[in-house]
Design a protein around this nucleic acid. Structure first.
Lengths: 259, 259
DNA sequence: TACTAAGTTTCAATATATGAAACCAATAGT
DNA sequence: ACTATTGGTTTCATATATTGAAACTTAGTA
């Protein structure tokens, strides 16, 4: 799923350790990390030391266990605020969420991947966890396809290259050609659907957010379990979704690149 | 005499750049960064390249501007989930927030600093921004003092050393002695107040969250503008706050360190 | 076309990272 | 009480990566 970012240079290697710690999902001790580390003891030790100094990791002095550090939170906080779209869109999403009574997602495109930058009114308990920061592929999600459809042709070419086209489910589009065909339709209709292409049992309806100069800046979606709404039923959200996307797009335009 | 948070090694220097980008609060171009960079063009260039490869930064290919990257969000997302307290506490905080109808904060202590890991029901528009990840000093915040008061003496000693005791306002405690005196009282009453010690016009009432074995694991608070509630008025939240803190503490105990 | 600013690459000198091994500090075992 | 074992930290010669001046390549302007 996560494509291994090749770790060039010292910085890369050190950052790999962060992923390692993140993967554990709990505080980990030096020795545990050493187990599945490609680096020798002294090297890993120094990485850990450096990262801890840098507050990218935090070391519990009692248990001697490392967890992800305070600086990541700080930086991500900044990233969120600076990713102009999320703060701007928030009030409109609130509005939409109460209007339709369903969970609403806001996503942006980053390096060919979908990054969820906000998420409201999650019902399920687990979904309640801050999904902000969740990353998904573009080619098999509603928001992803909504954004790809409105990308400049030359840019789309590049992004298509970046897709893995891994078949998560039977309905996942398996090739750039398959996808391009659908993107053409989305471009016409202005609405994208995800028919359980990423996760079995989950579908969604999504709309692109375009700035008034036509640049794609993000996408919003309403996702549900297929048992709750089938694809036909999701169409009822078409109008409010489009309306909200338009509102956000207009608002975003004035804020974009305040150079 | 530990060195100040100096950027040792290549990793440190590279990470500094992230802060730099974060500080701009908007996408920045290479040349802008070069302006106030201590490093020569080629070096900064390589930093940016590496960080971009590592997805710690993201480069808008159209505008050539850098912003904080997708990986920070991913990592912070993981950090949040893994910082066991936040997900566990969420339902209790929801409960409390609706009960008292005020904004509720959840914080943890990290390296002598207060890290806000969750925040609910913010009323003010600006406060709506994801304050998760916000960092504040411990010695002059309600949650900070609530936690310090219940730290093991030897640990408190260390943490006191880490405080700057910068006087943000006229009521800010200016020394470790002043603070210690108040901590003793908090230890007795189980409740901490912030009398505009960090920000003029903002006060709060806070309670520590203790695991059943007595270890401090976090703190919760209700903050308000002094115009809304004066310190006396805040006392009305004492009971619900304490009750919620107890509930979270109990729940947290079973989850802590699932070794 | 010539000029300038912005971004990228080269390359030798140098600083830094590396990792085997030695070391130290706690437990655990006998 | 001794000894072994595990878990963590430091050393140091060597290999390697980083550095930055300068040359180069665009892209934008007059």
């Amino acid at each position: 799923m996560d494509k291994p970012v090749k770790a060039d240079g010292t910085v890369g290697k050190a950052l790999e350790v962060l992923d390692q710690v993140a993967a554990y999902g709990r505080p980990v001790k030096f020795s545990e990390l050493l187990q599945d580390s490609p680096y020798p003891k002294a090297t890993l030790f120094r990485f850990l030391q450096t990262l801890t100094n840098q507050q990218m990791l935090s070391l519990d002095t009692d248990t001697g266990a490392y967890s992800l550090g305070i600086r990541l939170m700080r930086l991500a906080h900044a990233a969120w605020k600076n990713a102009s779209l999320a703060p701007i869109a928030r009030p409109f999403l609130e509005q939409l969420a109460t209007e339709v009574g369903e969970a609403v997602h806001l996503a942006q495109l980053d390096n060919g991947q979908v990054l969820f930058v906000d998420k409201l009114r999650a019902t399920d308990r687990f979904e309640t966890l801050a999904q902000v920061g969740h990353v998904a592929p573009a080619y098999c999600t509603g928001v992803g396809k909504a954004m790809l459809a409105f990308l400049a042709p030359k840019r789309l070419q590049i992004v298509l290259q970046q897709q893995s086209f891994y078949k998560f489910t039977t309905t996942t589009k398996g090739s750039a050609d398959d996808l391009s065909e659908e993107l053409a339709k989305i471009r016409k209709s202005g609405i994208a659907f995800d028919h359980e292409e990423h996760e079995q049992g989950i579908n969604s309806i999504a709309a692109p957010i375009l700035s008034t100069n036509g640049r794609i800046v993000g996408a919003i979606s309403i996702a549900s379990a297929t048992t709750r709404f089938d694809t036909e039923a999701l169409k009822q959200f078409r109008q409010p979704l489009l309306k909200t996307a338009k509102l956000i797009g207009d608002e975003a335009t004035s804020w974009q690149f305040p150079s």
